[in-house]
Amino acid sequence: MKTYHDIASDGGSDVIGQVTAQRARLEDRLSLVDHVVAVMSGKGGVGKSTITFVLAEALAERAWCVGIVDADINGPSIAQMTGVRTHVPVLTPGGVMPPENREGIRVMSMDLFLAQEAAPVLWEASTQDEAYTWRPMVEMGALRELIADTEWGPLDVLLVDLPPGADRLPNLASLLPRLSGVVVVTGPTSVSQVAVERSIGMASRVARVPVIGLVENMSAYICPACGAAELLDSNVGDAEALATRHGVPFLGHVPFDRNLALAADTGEPFLERYAGSMAGRAIIDISRKVARFLTR
């Protein structure tokens, strides 16, 4: 009987060949995608997913073909925001057809695979301790499948909604060498702005991905009754200075807007009804700058 050490190769698994095939599949899929743009932030809860969702809407209104892949494997929220959470993707010979929202935005998310909204994402392994050891690798594998096995069709742009944390970008960049750029989202407080500096450094120096620009989210509150804007924090305006300091474009302020929060919660489009609101106008202006960056 042969022992383990008698096996000269990897036992016929051809691991390198299989990994190469995975890469090739990803490249094939992205060959029909003009641009891939990641949305990141140093801190959680600053509105990355919300900005991804409305940026997708605004680009779709410019007649762009837009896809969103939810790279937040453990806290997916894009399917909910775009209103496709209950859709079932369909298998076709070309891959898995992603659900489309009312505005034609194609969405793929971990959320579409999970039975229960609130259940933690767990992977099968002989013990959960062990599953945790290998988890980062499994998550990258899951993201690779979400991108490579989805039948996106030709897209003008694929937006990637990242989980919180500056460290996620280099991981994504190693998976997707063709990243066109990154939009950095920040909240109005100085704490999240420190995180932004870290994000910008991570993007430009480590991942070597161009920074399309900085978005300051929830910097002001709009009164739902009279429409008056009230600044939420004395640090507002710092984001702009910070962008200048780092030599990255400032894309705009998106105020806190109750209708935006509601749209994101219910999966209703936001711009369809509120394009004229302050938040709506800010988003459209941001999308114009992003489009200009991509087509320059």
């Binding site: 599949r25 079932v88 298998l91 695979f113 767990l122 099968e124 594998g141 499948e145 979400l146 096995d149």
Partner: peptide, 23 residues
């Protein structure tokens, strides 16, 4: 070739009964 979303469909715990139609 690997089936589409093979890992997601086989290794995720608590997944939907039929996450992908006509699989």
């Amino acid at each position: 070739e690997a089936a589409p979303m093979e890992m997601l469909r086989s290794r995720l715990q608590g997944r939907r009964e039929t996450p992908i139609a006509e699989s």
